[in-house]
Each structure stands twice: as structure tokens, then as C-alpha cells.
Design a protein around this nucleic acid. Structure first.
Lengths: 128, 128
DNA sequence: TTGACACATGCCCATATAGGTATGTAAGTT
DNA sequence: AACTTACATACCTATATGGGCATGTGTCAA
């Protein structure tokens, strides 16, 4: 089986750096394809294709304006991603960095002597 | 050109639902491969392969324990994703839902009558 | 040593990709 | 109508994927 289609969901859609760049560019406001082509230094077909993917997952919406097509961001489509990663936020903001290790430690300490937490310095990675 | 490798970065790695499921399972604590196999209902090779990808992007770390290999979560690897989507958070939490439209409106209002900012609760589109 | 157990990999393959290039379509201009 | 501008698509291709299945490697048990 091949990888899931990029249009499967927002996760797959934004896995592409250029697609994220396009969304980032649209944060400022709606824009015609040509503007994105210039700003991102991509070819027109490239931008159109990426926009199509983003459109299929609902990350952007279009609006016709003469012979131009104004694309605008539709943030809510990215909420699932935010909701998911949010669950891992504390992993780097709090001292939860070694949650499992800490839990293991607690278990051992509890079993050994319930009241002496002097040993910690296990080889922990030097920053991430 | 094909799609970027799944091991390119966290974005590509977590585009796979099963990979996210694995990470979610590891939030509780480190676990041997077999446990994940049972919890997620996947085959052993599947889990091993997914874990490899997650390992290559730093989302998980391994620890040998006899003939088992205990995998544990390494949240910080997901920070880039969080940092990125965070920029879109207001898109659905605030009344920014129609940012561009609002901006357009403001421009028109500014042109019409410049001086009346009493009404805020602009009707959020009842669309879907 | 032999065997069971826990994982990691190798191999095969159908599938979807992303880029390049060319072309199709619609709208504005002269 | 002819031409240009602004996009969208079609077609082609190398590449990486993820699943199934078999097998290799290292560890504990008998």
C-alpha cells in the first residue's frame, strides 16, 4: 500500500513544506495565485496544485475575482492538528520531560525505601 | 519527484494515523513493541516499522530491556508542529474566523464613515 | 545446545506523489 | 476576432511508501 493521499486530511496536506508556506503567506490575507507564485518563488502549476490539495482538505477557500482566483486561509481546518499536538505541549513546557522515567523512578523508590530520592543523574540527553 | 520521506521531519512522520496512535499510546509511559501490537491491533512488523520512522525523527526513544525494547515518547520532537499550528489558533478561537472578510469590511467602513467602533459582535457566518 | 520469545529487516508490489512541461479554459483588452 | 493574462489540468516519471510475509538477530528458558 502506498502512503495515504495528501488530501486525506490536514495532517497529510501540511506535511509538505511548500503547502505550509502557502498557508503562512495567506495568513496576511487573501491573495491571487500569481502573488503566491512571486512570494514563494514557485512555478504557477506548483502553486495551483498545492492550493488544490489545501482546498480539498478545507485549509483554503477560493473566491473568483475576474480572471483571478483569490485564495484565502481557512484556519479551522488545522484545528485537528492543533488539538492533537496540544496533548504533547506539557512534554516540553513543564518538567514533564522525562515523565515515564520519573514514574519508573517513583515506583522503584516506593518499593525500595519510601523516602530517599538522592540518585537521579542517569544519562539524560544533553538538551534536545 | 516523490513525496518527501516520512523520516524527513515530524510533520511527515505524524501524517500517518497509526504513527500518531503509537505516540498517543506512549503518552502513558514506555512500552515494549508487543504491548503496542496488542493495544493498537497492528502486526508486529508494522509497529516496528512505524517505530523506526518515529525514532528517526526523534519522536520516540528506545531502551533495551532484556529481549524487549522499551519505547518511550519524546514529545519535544513535536514542538515544531505545535509552534506552527499555534499561529493559526486564533483563527478558530477568536472572532477571527473571517479575518480577511473582516479586513475587507473595515476597509469599506473606513472609507464610508471613519469613526464608530461600538459594534463588535459581528455576525459569524452561519455557514458550515 | 535446542527451542521459544521479542523485535528488526528484507523483499515484493500497488499506489500516490511532486515536479516539469505543455496545453486547456475563462476573462479582460484592443 | 485576435491576443494576452491568470489559472487549472493533463501527462510523464522517478521515488518513497506501507502492508504482507519470511527471515535474521539477540535473549531467556529448559
Amino acid at each position: 500500500m502506498a502512503r495515504a493521499a495528501t488530501t486525506t486530511d490536514a495532517f497529510n496536506a501540511v506535511a509538505e513544506p511548500r503547502r505550509r508556506a502557502i498557508l503562512d503567506a495567506l495568513v496576511t490575507g487573501e491573495r491571487p495565485v500569481n502573488a503566491l507564485v512571486g512570494e514563494l518563488g514557485l512555478t504557477q502549476p506548483q502553486v495551483s496544485k498545492h492550493l488544490r490539495v489545501l482546498r480539498e482538505v478545507g485549509a483554503v477557500e477560493v473566491r473568483d475575482d475576474g480572471r483571478r482566483r483569490l485564495y484565502r486561509l481557512n484556519g479551522p481546518a488545522l484545528k485537528p492538528i492543533h488539538d492533537w499536538v496540544k496533548g504533547y505541549e506539557r512534554t516540553w513546557t513543564e518538567r514533564f520531560e522525562r515523565l515515564d522515567v520519573v514514574l519508573e523512578d517513583l515506583k522503584h523508590q516506593e518499593a525500595a525505601h519510601a523516602g530517599d530520592e538522592q540518585r537521579h543523574g542517569d544519562g539524560h540527553a544533553p538538551d534536545g
